[in-house]
């Protein structure tokens, strides 16, 4: 086999399928006319290819009605859901209550999400003490953020301290 024959052998399949360009096709045909070996190869390729085609073209035995019985419920179910949704959505009375419900829902969601954040960001109220002093003693009042009731200390001065 010459190198030309090797090249042609590679092109025989595409030639058989009529997939070669005009120039290539002419080249293959010219070679086949002059080369009995390649002509023989082409004949064998065509014969086996025809047999394979015949086998591939045989119709398989399938119970098509039984297959359809499985297909139909599947395709019936999906459009039915879509049709129901579409019919419900286009009703004239749908959009006003739907919009109102959506607004209320959005507001509720906003507060639910933002309130904890707002609370956590509020400034911390610090405890503070007020005191009043007199000759006889002093009173201290403690206000805290946690307790609503103030804590009061009453401190009397000792006799020594009371002296002028």
């Amino acid at each position: 086999m010459t190198s030309i024959c090797e090249d042609i052998a590679y092109k025989l399949s595409a030639y058989l399928d009529n997939e070669l360009g005009e120039a290539e096709k002419n080249r293959v045909e010219a070679h086949l006319e002059n080369c009995p070996s390649c002509r023989g190869s082409f004949r064998e390729l065509k014969k086996s290819s025809d047999l394979v085609s015949a086998r591939l073209s045989v119709q398989p035995s399938v119970d098509f009605d039984k297959a359809w019985q499985h297909i139909e419920p599947e395709i019936r179910r999906r459009p039915a859901i879509r049709r129901y949704l579409r019919a419900f959505i286009v009703k004239p009375g749908f959009w006003i209550p739907a919009s109102a419900a959506a607004t209320v829902g959005a507001a509720a969601l906003f507060f639910a999400l933002c309130l904890p954040v707002y609370k956590s960001q509020r400034p911390v109220s610090l405890s503070h003490v007020e005191s009043v002093s007199s000759k006889s003693g002093s009173v201290m009042v403690l206000h805290t953020a946690k307790t609503s009731q103030p804590i009061i200390w009453i401190m009397e001065k000792s006799p020594k301290e009371k002296r002028p």
């Binding site: 025989l12 399949s13 595409a14 399928d17 064998e44 390729l45 086996s48 290819s49 047999l51 394979v52």
Partner: peptide, 17 residues
């Protein structure tokens, strides 16, 4: 595609000849 067809046919031909 052409190359795959070529090799597929060559293999089938080898088996079927």
């Amino acid at each position: 595609v052409g190359s795959r067809l070529h090799y597929a046919r060559a293999q089938l031909q080898k088996i079927l000849t």
